[in-house]
């Protein structure tokens, strides 16, 4: 999928807001040529964070701090991906004052997949589909009350076949 016109991006942004998913600031899976429109609607696009090869550097550049694991961050991800090109991952949390939810895949060429801003009064729940070349940890970061919380799960990517 490739979105090329600003008009379309504007419509799409409103749809996303209306659905309570919040505004996107980046996507790991679709090529996205509508940066100006998004940048105008949000803070600056975190260009450098989207260049990092490992998740720790990406988190540092995105947030300037580190996350602590929390069982209040719930990630729904398959144990073994049915198709590595489209892996459904969703995240919700019972934490309050959530301001953003971020997805990372350690073993992807670029670790940061997407970071979603969660406006005040929005349910902190995001579903997306990500692309994974190989077995990797998937990390969800929830920013709440100015602190970072995380959940991690290993998702296996296999060529398949030969089941009993």
């Amino acid at each position: 999928m490739s979105i090329t016109t600003n008009e379309f991006a504007e419509t799409r942004r409103m749809v996303l807001k209306g659905a309570g998913v919040a505004a996107l600031i980046g996507l790991g899976v679709v090529s996205f040529d509508a940066r100006p429109a998004l940048a105008a609607a949000n803070d600056a696009y975190p260009k450098e964070a989207f260049k990092q090869k490992n998740e720790a550097d990406a988190i540092k550049l995105l947030y300037g701090k580190t996350a602590e694991p929390s069982d209040k961050v719930k990630m729904d991800a398959p144990e073994i991906a049915e198709n590595g090109a489209v892996v459904p991952i969703s995240a919700t949390t019972t934490l309050s004052d959530v301001t953003s939810i971020t997805f990372l895949v350690s073993e992807n060429p670029i670790a940061l997949i997407a970071s979603y801003r969660i406006p005040d009064g929005t349910l902190p729940s995001v579903s997306n589909r990500i692309k994974m070349a190989k077995t990797s940890n998937v990390i969800v970061i929830v920013e709440a009350g100015g602190k970072l919380y995380s959940a991690t799960k290993e998702v296996k990517v296999t060529v398949g076949g030969c089941g009993g």
Partner: peptide, 23 residues
């Protein structure tokens, strides 16, 4: 080798949830 490794991991992964069964 990659194919053998992949199938072998379906059998002997230390986490049973990452095993598919079969030999």
């Amino acid at each position: 080798k990659d194919v053998l490794e992949d199938v072998c991991d379906n059998l002997f992964n230390a986490d049973p949830y990452h095993q598919q069964g079969g030999d």
